[in-house]
Design a protein around this nucleic acid. Structure first.
Lengths: 199, 199
DNA sequence: CATATTTATGACCAATTGGTAATTAATAAT
DNA sequence: ATTATTAATTACCAATTGGTCATAAATATG
């Protein structure tokens, strides 16, 4: 295995980069949903024929799972960094929530929330993936809140994990709400307002 | 027009009650989504043939719009009453949010939030309907919050409409979150926690 | 009873769906 | 150069999709 992931192997070489394709697939599912996306859509988005798509990634459902996983990894990477910029846990929490809010507004929502609403009730695999990522994010927030409380920057007397649950629900709500409004001014203050009510 | 809505008219009489059908359609769209629901699904849910469905309600999209409108009316009726049970605005706000939370958990989500996530970005008519109902609910909450602030039961210094926006987003988040968890214990406290942080 | 009107039913339709398989092309190993 | 292996392309498939239409059935009117 080398750094460019182009290990020479027997047979005709791939003409596409897997991540480039996964990115296109992800974007298509992200803004059309699972049922709203046809294989034809995926082909025109990726430039591949469905035969190639199937051989490389499996059927539509597997393709969705892989693109969802890709989304989770990428978006977490993109966002988690903002939680380590400052010394104070509260400042880190603030900039994290700001970053998520910004990304959520720019991206017109969150693929995980889309999948949660459309698929989780009828798709055990999707449900499990979301469950896992939810638990991880919840722990991440709980930790930040806990430390902010010890620092005295959060004075409200409530269990950190319950406060984290409030943030998680609010963030999900943000991702949903954003899809209905062209003017997102009101919405962008919501997380700040929640946080400042804990001061 | 009479009270039973069974005005005798020329031609073969309908063999179904419009509201009964609309209710079945609503439930199907509610838990399968728009793209996830086929005409066959709607036929088996209502017991009608698609010819009848088309003649009575129009095509799939119109049928969705009508069932969404039906949902909005019914759910608002069901829930709004809990905001007039007590004298204190704060107590009314509390019981309203409790009622919504309970209904949301029982119904495994909210059809409006589902439609918001799945359709609003690509469907102008759905977007408008949701926009309207959102504005109305926001005003409803703003009014309650405003009066609770004047009563001194909400002490946090923030504009009522911004606090209402927080509640709206949190409620949307609740509707989304509920779809991923069989155990809804943690979630059921979220609205209470938000409210109590304003005390 | 005959007619006009509305509804229910089932046949029908072109287009699209997700998915498969056969063929051709490009590479590495021998 | 031949062969094995993998990928790209194309043709193909049954099933389902949303939607229409002709026909039969049920009622009110005359």
């Amino acid at each position: 295995m080398n750094s460019t992931n182009q290990q020479k192997s027997v047979g005709r070489p791939r003409e596409f980069e897997e991540d480039r394709v996964l990115d296109a697939v992800m974007n298509t599912f992200w803004n059309q949903g699972y049922e709203g996306t046809s294989l034809k859509d995926l082909c025109s988005a990726t430039g591949l024929h469905k035969g190639s798509l199937y051989q490389a990634f499996g059927d539509k459902h597997q393709l969705f799972l892989k693109s969802l996983k890709y989304y989770m990894e990428q978006s977490f990477k993109e966002v988690a960094a903002s939680a380590y910029l400052h010394d104070s846990p509260m400042a880190n929490l603030r900039s994290l929530l700001n970053e998520i809010t910004t990304k959520c507004i720019e991206g017109e929502g969150c693929m995980v929330v889309n999948a949660l609403v459309e698929m989780a009730p009828h798709d055990q695999e999707v449900k499990q993936m979301i469950d896992q990522s939810y638990a991880m994010k919840q722990r991440f927030l709980t930790d930040l809140i806990d430390r902010a409380q010890r620092d005295g920057e959060i004075t409200i007397k409530q269990e950190p994990d319950r406060l984290a649950a409030v943030l998680m629900v609010t963030l999900a709500g943000l991702a949903a709400t954003v899809k209905g409004f062209s003017n997102t001014d009101h919405i962008s203050y919501v997380l700040e307002d929640v946080l400042s009510s804990w001061a």
